[in-house]
Design a protein around this nucleic acid. Structure first.
Lengths: 212, 212
DNA sequence: TAGATTGTTAATCGATTAACAATC
DNA sequence: TAGATTGTTAATCGATTAACAATC
């Protein structure tokens, strides 16, 4: 039995480690390993075993004292916590270089997401196909988002158009937005939005190599 | 005069906010604004003014009490702290969808990075051009990295080849690695590496929309 | 049983928020 | 001067690490 504790008590850092656990458990399972200790999982990920046990314990008791964690069971539990078993429908808006890369990113498929729609504004791009999905005119966004039950909208348009697209996604009723445009988006408090700012990582690297 | 404090005292979270300050200062400057308060900067970014003042104060005294911060001066200071004025040379390894997107990402140019080399393994890709740079055979990586003084290697190859590429980059003498492959990389302690794991953000979004 | 390993509590460490003196 | 705003110290909050009892 799984005891689920109050969401608010769980650290943001913990949630960001769960996908790493999930991925490693899958790799471990492919190697034919049935049981794994927090020690071994930690060794593979460069995370302390205490941290891993604490993270998992915030969601329930998944291990067996003196034994470890059953890989398959833990993998399903972690996947469930992350909501991956909902197999969310995703759509990418803005099929430039980045949007096309996201549309073709196979790791999303392996996490259980379904790519159901692509949108662009450029007549030369509309009608082309990426990863077996046809690019639609962004003017039909609202209608298609509803028809295909899009849960998550991925914004890969230039910064100048991002807010407008976000507004349309909110109106069309998506559950969450994954934003790659480097701007502070205005969305209702109830809308979940995750910003993916690629220049932060590169700037951080610049910072570190500058002062080593 | 700028007082620079010990690096170790500065929080990782602070460093990740600096690129946001830098970008906003540039936007503000484009609007013709000469002076900005922590309050206004915070309003634009959704960050508290106290946080911004604290972040900046860890690197020196850049503001004027009762006045605010001179936009141009602060922008240059923040850029300098991030090391953007070094105009680091970057190379992308793996010109698939993601690698091509990174090679064409204009925000990196605007941060002062220079794209100097692209590498792939596929004969059909070698010789093609992305963003005015020709794709070279990855077997020539070591030589070209030295010739063109590559500072940062961006790994966009499939997970199975990522460690091998990292090893070659380390041997060739890059200063830092920006890794998009979803694996735990083994590099010497002296090597700076930033991992960009796109599935974390999407998984986090899945987590939040699952339990709203 | 003895050894291994979890889950949890307590201690420490780090980051944010609040408050306010300094000063433009 | 009076009002505005920084820079810094103190207080709070949150996350990680350490320690260990429970138990397989």
């Amino acid at each position: 039995m799984t005891t689920t504790k109050r969401t608010s008590l769980i650290s943001k850092a913990t949630i960001d480690r769960l996908p790493l656990y999930f991925r490693t458990l899958r790799l471990v399972q492919d190697e034919g390993i049935d049981v794994i200790s927090s020690d071994e999982l930690g060794r593979r990920l460069g995370i302390t075993p205490e941290q891993i046990r604490k993270d998992l314990a915030s969601f329930g008791q998944f291990g067996k004292k003196g034994v470890g964690y059953y890989v398959n069971e833990l993998k399903h539990n972690v996947g469930g916590i992350l909501g991956l078993d909902n197999h969310w429908n995703i759509a990418v808006i803005g099929i430039g270089h980045l949007g096309a890369a996201l549309a073709n990113y196979q790791n999303f498929v392996s996490l259980g997401f379904n790519l159901v729609a692509l949108f662009d504004q450029d007549p030369k791009v509309i009608g082309t196909v990426q990863n077996h999905v046809k690019v639609e005119d962004v003017r039909e966004l609202a209608q298609i988002v509803r028809e295909r039950h899009v849960d998550i909208g991925i914004i890969a348009v230039p910064a100048a158009f991002a807010q407008e697209v976000a507004d349309q996604l909110v109106t069309a009723g998506v559950k969450g937005i994954w934003n790659f445009a480097p701007i502070k988006m205005q969305v209702p408090d109830s809308m979940h939005i995750v910003n993916e700012d690629l220049s932060i990582g590169l700037s951080r690297l610049s910072y570190y190599i500058t002062r080593r």
